[in-house]
Nucleic acid binder design. Structure first.
Length: 597
RNA sequence: GGUCUCGUAGCUCAGUUGGAUAGAGCAAUAGCCUUCUAAGCUAUGGGUCGAAGGUUCGAAUCCUUCCGGGAUCACCA
């Protein structure tokens, strides 16, 4: 049993013995002592005053006496107002540190028989334009949350549902047909997703011209939008696609393959991957059967024009369309169907959708409707709703060209990392390949950390004019600390100093060293909390705090000039443990750490 | 208009079952490399936690109202 649980149990026991009353477990609040005070753990006694019927200081003292007597690890305690600060003996912390050293997967929980199967859908791009910064947040979050859930013993299935059909896809296709002159990514020397994206933009420009022409001729704006020749042609193309017209299908396959090849490059750069990729062209017809079923059961209603709806007014929402009057399905219909399919195929205990918060309503409705249909697993749906990435001027808009392109951004980060390395002259004696690898690791580390350190739920701002920092609370700062520790360990090796397998539990250690050990102690809790909250930000912030502490230690505690050999051994051991956790934590964020930089 | 959501230092963000004097980074200023990587460390300044009420031993955190931003409420996805 861990120390905190033991403290709680003993407090319950103490209250029972001293005040002859059983306290509610919730009233026992053990927290880490704030660093301005002496101690390791603090019991807040205010909630217990009702039971003790004595002043806070007296209650705290009585409990402190009992705890010290019954838990041998407690070396002393002090009372300030209603706070009982308990100090845990140094030997406890040192033997704890040894247990970390002996553990190759500290903080991680192995998959076991009762493990949950969690399916997580993320990325889910449209194949009509390249990925932008918003997609980067989605991808990094999805990947990182998968890693975190795995670390806590879950079986995780990462899936990507590629949106490869629909009117928006036809727009790029049509524009290519009209103005492409047979160009291909090879001929253009361009990534396929960017090339196709260009045609999507081209379509929109021409479409807008047509609209303004029609408006000049006296059409209303709505009519102009509906009747512009281009949009009619695109709609016609979609009909042909649905009718499996061979010419359209051939073009569709080709252009999609260009885009997907482009995405693969970006995914690889970002280091994200999937266990299963679904294509909407295969799944878009799912769901109709469920709607039929709902109609039979009388859960849905059919209107006079033949359209099918779900009435959610009792839940305080509106009516939701499920089938159009012509019998074709909408987004919701498909999502009902794919969710159903997935639970059938994987028997998952949880299905997480990493999708922006602009779709909160959609997922609320999705869950409600599945519940109405009587599927108990609707409870297992979870919308991991993340905030938008905005520019200082506001939302990114693809049509106004204000999007931050994913590939450009990644390349820019790597270039910045390279410039900085050159400026600092740190990599001068490295081979080009090594240099390239390190610089990529740093650039991507900066980008990923920048995105992931922010609470997923929150809208975040990105200013393209200010480059992402490499100093302070950043990825490179964490990586740098790791590289420094590796340098220490290499140097120890050169000096033939072997890192001890265990430290003496009676070693002399400084306050800062003790603080570091206590920090290490909280890692497992941080991981379990971040899994519960689907929040890589909690891991990022923890790693930052750890690294900050370590750098202070590094600054104040020289190692190789220290004459006391046991201190040298201890500091190297401690450093090694810290670097292990840095690497582990960063890997959960999908960030690599370099051995030198 | 209905529903949801956010508001913490000049800027970007921590602060999670309500706990002690609200914290970091960036930016600014002043220091620290003949000593393990200065992408580092130290110090200084910077706050009506959007506002007002309420709940209680205690509120940035919970409740109400208001102010200000954002999202959403399509036979789009």
């Amino acid at each position: 049993m861990d120390i905190e649980s033991r403290l709680i149990e003993t407090v319950i026991e103490a209250v029972h013995k001293i005040y002859d009353q059983a306290p509610d477990k919730k009233t026992i609040q053990i927290q880490k002592t704030r660093k301005d005070f002496d101690g390791d753990f603090t019991l807040v006694v205010f909630p217990l005053l009702r039971i003790s019927k004595k002043p806070p200081e007296q209650t705290a003292t009585e409990l402190g006496d009992y705890l010290q007597e019954n838990i041998k690890e407690i070396s002393s305690y002090n009372v300030i107002k209603g706070f009982l600060n308990l100090s845990i003996d140094k030997s406890f912390w040192l033997s704890f540190l040894n247990s970390v050293g002996n553990n190759t997967n500290y903080g991680f929980i192995k998959e076991h028989e009762a493990s949950n199967t969690v399916m997580i859908e993320y990325s889910s791009p449209n194949t009509n334009k390249p990925l932008h910064l918003g997609h980067i947040r989605n991808n990094l979050l999805g990947y990182s949350v998968s890693q975190i859930l795995k670390s806590q013993g879950n079986k995780v299935v990462k899936v990507n549902l590629v949106n490869d059909r629909g009117i928006h896809i036809c727009k790029s296709m049509l524009a290519w047909q009209k103005w492409g002159e047979g160009i291909t990514p090879e001929k253009a020397g361009k990534k396929g997703d960017h090339l196709v994206g260009d045609f999507y933009v081209k379509f929109d420009q021409e479409y807008k011209k047509e609209i303004s022409e029609l408006i000049e001729k006296g059409s209303s704006e709505d009519d102009a939008k509906k009747n512009a020749p281009l949009i009619l042609e695109a709609q016609e193309m979609l009909r042909k696609w649905e009718a499996k017209d061979s010419e359209v299908i051939t073009l569709w396959k080709e252009m999609n393959s260009w885009v997907l090849a482009g995405f693969d490059v970006t995914y690889k750069e970002l280091g994200v991957d999937f266990d299963k990729v679904y294509f909407e062209s295969d799944t878009y017809k799912l769901g109709k059967a469920l709607v039929e079923e709902g109609l039979q059961k009388g859960i849905f209603i059919k209107k006079d024009d033949g359209s099918v709806w779900c009435d959610l007014t009792d839940e305080g929402l509106d009516q939701k369309l499920l089938l159009r009057a012509d019998g074709t399905s909408v987004y919701m219909t498909q999502d009902l169907g794919t969710a159903h399919q997935r639970f059938k195929d994987y028997d998952a205990n949880e299905l997480i959708y990493v999708v922006g918060n602009e779709q909160n309503y959609h997922f609320q409705v999705l869950k409600l409707i599945l519940g109405k249909l009587g599927y108990s697993w609707s409870e297992y749906l979870h919308h991991l709703s993340y905030g938008m990435v905005e520019l200082p001027e506001g939302k990114m808009k693809s049509r106004e060209g204000t999007v931050v392109d994913a590939d450009d951004l990644i390349a820019g980060m790597v270039t910045t990392a390279e410039e900085m390395s050159n400026e600092l002259g740190k990599l001068d004696d490295y081979s080009e390949t090594d240099k390239k690898n390190i610089v990529e690791t740093i650039g991507l580390g900066a980008l990923k950390y920048f995105i992931l350190k922010v609470d997923p739920k929150k809208t975040m701002t990105f200013d393209p004019k200010e480059s992402i920092d490499f100093n302070g609370n950043t990825g490179p700062f964490v990586q740098y600390t790791y590289a420094r520790i590796q340098a220490l360990l290499r140097k120890a090796d050169e000096k033939n100093i072997t890192i001890t397998e265990e430290v003496e539990t009676n070693s002399e250690i400084s306050a800062k060293e003790l603080q570091l050990i206590k920090f290490i102690h909280t890692y497992p809790e941080v991981l379990s909390e971040s899994a519960k909250n689907y929040s890589p930000a909690m891991v990022a912030n923890y790693v930052y705090e750890l690294v900050k502490e370590y750098n202070q230690f590094y600054h104040d505690h020289p190692i190789f000039s220290e004459s006391d050999e046991s201190k040298v051994a201890f500091r190297l051991y401690l450093s090694a443990q810290v670097s292990k956790i840095i690497k582990s934590g960063m890997s959960l964020l999908g960030i690599n750490v370099p051995d030198r930089m």
